[in-house]
Simulated assay, not measured.
Amino acid sequence: MGTAGAIRRLIDMAPLKSWLIVNSRSGSNSEAALVALERSLAAYAMPTAETIAFPAEELPTRTVLESADVARLIVFTGDGTLNAVIEAVAGWSGEVLVLPGGTMNLLSARLHGPDTDYDAILERIARGAFRPVRPKMACCSAGRAHAGVLVGPGTAWAEVREAMRDFDVAGLAQGTSEALAETTGGSRVKMVEPAIGHDDGYPLIELTPSHRGIQVDGFRIESAGEFLQQSWALLRRSFRKGPHERLGLLDRLVIENCAGEPIEVLIDGEPAKLGSRAEFTVEDCPVDLLATAHGF
Rank of each mutant, 00 (worst) to 15 (best):
M1F: 14
T3A: 05
A4G: 09
L16T: 07
S18L: 09
S18T: 13
R25M: 12
N29M: 07
L34I: 11
V35T: 05
A42L: 13
A43M: 12
A45D: 07
M46R: 15
M46K: 12
P47S: 08
T48F: 14
T48V: 15
A49D: 10
A49K: 08
F54E: 08
P55E: 10
E57K: 15
P60A: 13
T61Q: 08
T61S: 12
T63S: 04
L65C: 13
E66C: 05
A68L: 08
I74G: 15
V75W: 12
G78N: 05
G78V: 14
A84L: 11
V85T: 08
V85C: 14
V89A: 01
L99W: 15
G101F: 07
P114H: 10
T116M: 06
L122M: 06
I125P: 02
R127V: 09
P135D: 10
S141E: 03
G143R: 02
V149T: 03
G154K: 02
E162H: 11
A163E: 10
D166E: 00
F167Q: 07
D168W: 13
G175M: 06
E178L: 05
E182F: 04
G186D: 13
S187Y: 08
R188W: 11
K190H: 09
K190G: 06
E193G: 00
H198T: 05
G201N: 05
L207E: 02
F219R: 02
E226I: 11
Q229D: 04
L234P: 00
L250Q: 05
R252E: 10
I255G: 00
E256V: 00
I263A: 00
A272H: 08
K273A: 05
S276V: 01
L289T: 09
A291K: 00
H294S: 13
F296A: 05
